[in-house]
């Protein structure tokens, strides 16, 4: 049975094409590209909310996109227990919709950060099944607001429910700080309670081809397909 997926494009999305290629190359199945004003979503296994600056990041990153017409369908898709992945701006949109806890605030150094980062999995879920414990993944980040924040109560919930999917870590020979953007407990990605919705700041769609510096981004799709 082939794996079906879709990528939503908002005005200002700029990683939608990258996400489409990522899915096409790795799933070998049908991939739909859905414009934000659509009111229906085909029945697919995975939906990606891609990175970028939806609506120019005006108001607050992800805030405007979370009110787009297609979002009702995206929520239904998630409630149906199917996979939803928000990458970078997609993660910000998921927190704005309320499908994920917490918020993404400005990076600790108050500067855009575009470089390789290193992450490892924290708690097991269907998005990171193929990743070994303590395996360090090298994946690029590119964000201004990637500093994950939540209150202590929420943090305890995330821990108790094992919703933390990825955390930043030190890379071998790397000059980069361990907690690259100052996220609380170095959180790089979280899921919802049911663990079918994942938001992450690093861009796996920029680390999968043979010519990319790393192919670790494949592991997420491989986890979902396996």
């Amino acid at each position: 049975m082939s794996f079906k997926s879709a990528v939503i494009t908002f005005p200002g999305s700029n990683c939608d094409r990258d996400a489409l290629y990522y899915l096409k190359d790795l799933t070998k199945g049908v991939v739909h590209n859905i414009w934000h004003e659509e009111t229906s979503l085909p029945k697919v296994d995975l939906v990606i909310l891609p990175g970028g600056f939806s609506f120019g990041d005006y108001l607050r990153s992800g805030a405007m996109a979370s009110k787009s017409k297609i979002i009702d369908e995206v929520v239904k898709h998630a409630n149906d227990n199917r996979y939803l992945l928000g990458i970078c701006n997609g993660f910000q949109i998921l927190t704005e919709i309320g499908l994920l806890e917490g918020a993404l605030i400005r990076n600790k150094k108050l500067k855009f950060l575009g470089k390789n980062c290193f992450i490892k999995k924290k708690f097991k879920n269907n998005f990171n099944l193929s990743i070994k414990d303590n395996q360090v993944l090298q994946i690029p980040v590119a964000h201004n607001e990637g500093n994950f924040y939540c209150d202590t109560e929420t943090l305890n919930l995330l821990k108790n429910n094992e919703q933390i999917a990825f955390e930043y870590c030190k890379g071998e020979f790397s000059n980069t700080e361990e907690n690259i953007n100052g996220s609380i407990e170095a959180i790089a990605g979280i899921t919802n309670k049911k663990k079918n919705v994942l938001g992450m700041m690093p861009h796996p769609e920029r680390a999968y081809s043979d010519f990319h510096q790393s192919q670790d981004g494949r592991l997420i799709i491989e986890s979902l397909i396996s």
């Binding site: 990683c15 094409r17 990522y22 575009g114 590119a142 861009h203 920029r206």
Partner: peptide, 15 residues
């Protein structure tokens, strides 16, 4: 790197 790290150099996935 202080300069370059403020730029997105990997978007479009072809860098």
């Amino acid at each position: 790197s202080w300069v370059f790290d403020q730029y997105d150099s990997t978007v479009m996935g072809d860098t």
